[in-house]
Simulated scan of single mutants.
Amino acid sequence: MSFLKNMTLIVLGALTGFVLLGGLGAALGLEFLTEFLTLEAASLVALWLAITAVITTYHEGKRAFPISHMVSFIGYPRSGKTTLITALFSEVFAQRILRGVNIIPRGAETIERVNEDIARLETGRELAPTTAQDLFSYRVEMLTGKTSLSRRYKIEIGDFPGEDSENLANKDAAWLHKTKYFQWALNADVFIFVIDLENLTDLGDDRAREYKSLLERSFRAAWQRIKEHHYDGARKLRNNPVILAFTKADLLLDSENSYRENSAASAGNAPGNYHRPVVLDSKERNRELSEKQESIEAYFRDIIQYLGSETSRFHVIFTSAFAKEKPDSVRFGIEELARSVLPK
C-alpha cells in the first residue's frame, strides 16, 4: 500500500498548490486562473478516488479468493509424519509459533482428525496410521496480516498413506509413481521428504545402510518424476521449498541419558510423555546433538547435495515432538519447519 500512500501525499501536495494559486489568482482578479485550477483540482481528486477504488478492490479480491498452497509429506510408514503434522498444529493452536497468523481447520474430517490426534499425543496414546481414505485429510485456511494487505491461503497438507508407504520397502524405484497420492503430490508447492532417525541409531550396521540406500534411490527417483512432470516450464521448481526432515531427533542423544525412557521409540510408535519432553538445556546435551546431526548430514551427503542443487529453497531440518531447547520453548524444529513450508 506504499504506492497508495505516496499517491495520497502527491495529491494533497498538488491540491495545496492549487489552493494557494487559486487564492493568488482571486487576489489579482484573474478569475480564469481560479476557474482553471478548480477544474484541475476536481479532475485530480476524481483520478485519486478512481485509483484508490481500483487498488482497494484488488486487495479485497485477494482476500476474497484464497491462494492455493499444497504441502506433501513423503516417507516410510511409521516414520513420524503424522506425529510431525500433529505437533505442528498443536504449536500453532497454542500460539507458540506463527503468532498473529490465523489458521483455521476446514471440514469436519480435518477438525475431528486434528483434535483427536492432539488429544492422543497429549495423553500418550498411539496415533492411528494414515490410510488411503485420509489422502487429503488436512485442509486449513490461513490468513496473514490484519490490513488490506492481508492474504488468505487455502492449504492442503497431504500425509502419504501408510498403506501406500509400505511400497517404499520394494526395490522397484517406481514404488510411489503409480499411487494416487503421488499424482496429487506432483502439483504440490512444498515437498517434504521424511527420514526416520530410529533407523539410524547405528550408522555402521547393515540396517542403516540399507535404509539409506532405499531412501536415497526412492527420493531421487520421486524428484526426477516431479521434474519430468513440470518439464514444460509450467512450474518453476527452483523456487519451491524442498525439505529433508529428520524425525525423532531426541533419539540422537546418548542412550544412557536419563531422558531415554521418554524418547519417541520407547514404546514402538506410541508417543512418550508429551508433557515431559527431552530438554536440551545444557551445553553437553546441545553439543552431543549437534555432533550427531553433523554425522547424519554427512551420512546423507549425496541426497542432500542433489536436492540442494535442484532448488534455491532447500532445507535440512531435524525435528522431534518430544524434545525442546528450553522448558517453555517450541517443540524441537517445529517452528523452523512451519516457516519453511507455509506461505509467507
Rank of each mutant, 00 (worst) to 15 (best):
K324G: 04
R209E: 12
S266E: 06
W223M: 08
T86L: 05
Y211S: 04
L149F: 11
P105S: 08
R139S: 09
L4R: 10
R313E: 10
H69N: 06
L252H: 10
W48P: 02
L12W: 08
L47E: 14
F93T: 00
F191E: 09
Y274Q: 03
N286P: 01
A234H: 15
F89C: 02
R313S: 12
F300I: 01
L49Y: 15
Q183F: 15
A234C: 12
L39D: 14
S43C: 11
L135C: 05
R151D: 13
R276L: 01
T247P: 00
Y231K: 13
Q224E: 15
K212P: 05
R260V: 10
F18N: 02
W223E: 08
R225Q: 11
L24Y: 12
I195N: 04
L200K: 09
A50V: 12
A221F: 08
H230Y: 14
I74H: 00
L37T: 08
I304P: 00
R106E: 07
T34P: 02
M7T: 12
Y211M: 09
T311Q: 04
H230I: 07
L20E: 04
S218M: 03
K212A: 08
I85L: 01
D196Q: 08
I55Y: 07
L289P: 08
A108L: 05
L37G: 02
R285V: 15
S213G: 00
R209Q: 14
N170M: 05
M70G: 04
E126Q: 06
E310W: 04
I10A: 13
G162F: 09
A323D: 00
E126P: 00
K81C: 01
E35W: 15
I55E: 09
L214F: 10
L337I: 05
A119L: 06
L47N: 15
